[in-house]
Simulated assay, not measured.
Amino acid sequence: MSELVRVLVVDDEALVRHALRAFIADDDRVVLVGEATDGSEVAESCEMTNPDVVLMDIRMREVSGVEATRRVLEWNPRCRVLALTTFTTEWRALEVLRAGACGYLVKNSTPKQIIDAIVAAHAGDRVVSPEVQGRFVRAAIEAGDSQMSDAPTLSDREQQIIEQIAQGSSNAEIAQALHYAEGTVKADIRHINHLWNVENRLQIVLRATELGLISI
């Protein structure tokens, strides 16, 4: 059995922390190592608990999740920060992603979606809730950001993988859905990044939408 993913929860709402505690306890892939009630506690909590992934609320009383994300990465650049918030606006997501978070989930996500996202984040994936991802795409299109009229041809498998990414699926979920090894999926995503000169899953979705390969 692989080692459990160590999770620190940072949220100022007791009910949210209680729910996340229950979600994590119910899944044998993850373990809760600590909780913090504000971003001001993050650095000390990380030192004490040594998490692999920090589930981070954005709006907190003293220190916001954006600033707290920076503090986590100052403590350990290899730690993964996954924002979990009620906000679905793209600018809120951009704030925390630019601060270094590897993903952005909304709090109405299912327990499975949250735990899968934690595991995916630990594995190196970027995870963005589909509704927020859709807002990114629409905002880019409305702003006229498309600079590309054509692109290198993709294989059928790469096209399928892009469609799965647009649905918010992790690498593991894509591998299961398409019946490929997870390593194959990761290699194909790296190839897409190289072909399109992009860096992450969100940029893949934006480019694919610009090219008319998918619709959001």
Rank of each mutant, 00 (worst) to 15 (best):
D116H: 01
R71L: 15
V16G: 08
A177E: 05
A117T: 13
N76W: 10
R207W: 06
D156Q: 15
M48Q: 14
R126P: 09
L15S: 12
T86K: 11
V7A: 04
R157V: 13
S129N: 11
T88V: 07
I214G: 04
N171H: 06
V16E: 03
H179K: 13
V42D: 03
D12Y: 04
A14V: 13
L105P: 00
A166I: 10
A181Y: 09
N200L: 04
A22F: 08
S170L: 03
P51S: 01
E158G: 11
R201D: 13
L84G: 03
V127C: 02
N76I: 05
L195V: 00
V10C: 05
V132H: 01
D57S: 06
N171V: 06
H191A: 13
P152L: 09
D188L: 07
R17L: 10
L73C: 03
V96A: 00
P152C: 01
T69M: 08
D188R: 05
H191R: 13
S64G: 12
Q167T: 08
A143D: 11
L178W: 03
C102S: 09
S129C: 09
H194A: 14
S45L: 15
E41P: 08
A19W: 05
A187V: 13
P111Q: 11
E47Q: 15
V16T: 05
W75M: 15
A172Q: 13
R92L: 11
T49A: 07
A68F: 09
E182M: 13
A172C: 12
N197M: 08
E47Y: 15
V72T: 00
T37V: 15
